[in-house]
């Protein structure tokens, strides 16, 4: 048996692709329907933007996402870098801790947040930022860990030291460039998660974009499906862009060399 890509494989993938894209297309078609079967229109999409609460909700979610990213940047990145450089023996411990949130269902975390957090924190939607960091932690850690491993950061730092650079220079010229791509990936995951997170937001009674979208759906089914299509389609396009980024980069690099 050869591991060749046969027509059977192509069929399977084609079928799978169809089954997963079909609902999206169906939803897109649905969302473009006008009332009373008057043909297709994009009016439902403009409806989204003009709805009451759209801007505040979106703005809130963006703010929360920004703070969450900041916390990840300040907390997770230095920690993982530290584990790879100096604290190597704690690697297993940190790995277990960072993957721990996966065990906890988000619902339960929400309950815990309600029970444990002080009123002062619970009154601001920024409370979500901290819990989003917890929820994102496994994915963030994985991304950073794999990225730093492949770069063998400790070797680079030792080389930098042996060449005479001090810690600041090493940080700026070696460490930061080395971790740039995996950090970007981790932040991207965090961003996507923060924007789309629903469970914690709704159980803790905050008004973020996802909760707003759910509420708005009560009024206009077509409009809310339009939101769904936008969210999913947008996420897909973004992810494909990110996936093809290396190729695009090398395209530019090649041009530079020729020039």
């Amino acid at each position: 048996m050869k591991r060749q890509f046969t027509w059977l494989d192509k069929t399977i993938i084609a079928f799978a692709g169809f089954f997963f894209i079909a609902p999206l297309i169906a939803a897109a078609e649905y969302s473009a329907r006008g009332y009373g079967n008057k043909g297709h229109t994009l009016s439902n999409y403009s409806w989204i933007i003009h709805q009451l609460g759209f801007s505040p909700a979106l703005w809130t979610s963006l703010r929360i996402a920004a703070i969450t990213i900041l916390i990840v940047l300040v907390l997770m990145v230095p920690t993982v870098v530290y584990v790879h450089l100096g604290g190597r023996k704690y690697r297993r411990l940190v790995e277990i801790l960072c993957l721990l949130p996966i065990v906890i269902p988000v619902v339960s975390l929400a309950i815990g947040a309600q029970v444990a957090m002080p009123k002062s924190l619970q009154s601001t939607s920024y409370e979500l930022c901290f819990f989003y960091v917890v929820v994102a932690m496994p994915y963030v850690y994985r991304t950073l860990d794999i990225g730093l491993q492949s770069v063998s950061l400790s070797t680079l730092v030792e080389a930098s030291h042996s060449l005479g650079a001090n810690w600041i220079k090493t940080l700026l010229m070696v460490i930061i460039p080395a971790i740039r791509s995996s950090t970007t990936g981790a932040l991207f995951i965090t961003f996507a998660l923060s924007l789309g997170e629903y469970t914690l937001a709704v159980l803790l009674h905050f008004h973020t974009f996802p909760t707003w979208a759910t509420n708005a759906s009560q009024q206009n089914i077509y409009g809310s499906i339009a939101i769904s299509v936008t969210t999913l389609g947008g996420a897909w396009i973004l992810l494909i862009l990110v996936a093809f980024l290396p190729r695009i980069k090398s395209l530019f690099a090649r041009k530079e060399r020729v020039a």
């Binding site: 169906a26 979208a213 759910t214 089914i221 809310s224 499906i225 939101i227 769904s228």
Partner: peptide
Amino acid sequence: VPLAFMFIAA
């Protein structure tokens, strides 16, 4: 909701 409504639409 995005997923659920997509399925409702489909």
